[in-house]
């Protein structure tokens, strides 16, 4: 069953049509990826799903219910959580507080403590820096905070906008490894990436976005072998 389903979604910024009617669906438990060049509309798609902007037309359904008219915090409370582009961690809050912010919609103290412990095992670097103000962390560590923060919500689905951006190749490997781990724990993932090679190789299903339109879609492996994708994104 499709956990997230967009059909014919159109988004405008004033008069600019950023999404020209896109449809995609993500199966529960899978990793889907949305790849495309700068300005293709990848972030816009995720922002529309999270309720940060409202589509002019089309529907977005999550777990069978429409998201139309819902506010971002309500969508997060439904278990559909976004790790935004550029990480957007709270730089003046401590790492600990950032994690607590991630669990903002939850009230099960015990469960929150358990999840925190589990995440600190996944990202041991953060344990040493719990009391540190997050703005002073390195880029890689900030990405860990952003991911851990989102997971603190115990999401059933994670939207990740370019988690590998600005990281050294070795760290990029790590990020993708983490995504696999998270998915193996049962979290459905929609991953937005410019690093098409990496994204398509871990994705069950891929979509290629070009100027606000989905021009290609199919199993990640197939897209990797596709002549047009190779030509446009993989050099």
């Amino acid at each position: 069953m499709a956990l997230l389903e967009l059909s014919d979604v159109q988004v405008f910024y004033d008069k600019i049509e950023a999404l020209k009617g896109i449809s995609l669906s993500v199966e529960a438990g899978r990793i889907a990826t949305l790849v495309g060049a700068n300005g293709a509309g990848k972030s816009t798609t995720l922002r529309a799903v999270s309720g940060l902007i409202h589509p002019r037309a089309g529907t977005i359904r999550y777990d069978g219910t429409t998201l139309a008219g819902r506010q971002p915090h309500e969508i997060t409370a439904m278990g559909l959580v976004q790790v935004p582009e550029g990480r957007r961690i709270f730089g003046r809050l401590t790492v600990e507080e950032n994690l607590a912010m991630g669990a903002f919609t939850r009230h099960d103290r015990r469960g929150i403590a358990e999840d925190r412990e589990r995440l600190l095992q996944l990202f041991p670097r953060l344990r040493e820096r719990l009391r540190q103000v997050a703005g002073t962390l390195s880029g890689g560590e900030q990405q860990m905070v952003a991911t851990a923060r989102a997971l603190m919500a115990r999401p059933s689905m994670l939207l990740m906008d370019e988690p590998s951006m600005g990281l050294a190749p070795m760290l990029v490997e790590q990020v993708f490894e983490t995504i696999r781990t998270i998915n193996a724990d049962g979290v459905t993932i929609l991953l937005v990436e410019q690093n098409a090679l990496m994204a398509l190789s871990i994705a069950d299903h891929g979509y290629v976005l070009e100027s606000g339109r989905i021009v290609l879609s199919g199993p990640g492996r197939d897209l990797l072998d596709d002549e047009r994708v190779r030509h446009a994104y993989l050099g």
């Binding site: 940060l52 971002p72 957007r88 709270f90 507080e97 912010m101």
Partner: peptide, 24 residues
């Protein structure tokens, strides 16, 4: 407090706070 922390988070980045489930 939880509300105080949310307030500091909103002060820094309202949109990110909303994505964390904060009713801004």
């Amino acid at each position: 407090t939880r509300m105080g922390m949310a307030m500091r988070a909103v002060s820094e980045d309202g949109e990110a706070a909303a994505l964390m489930g904060v009713d801004v």
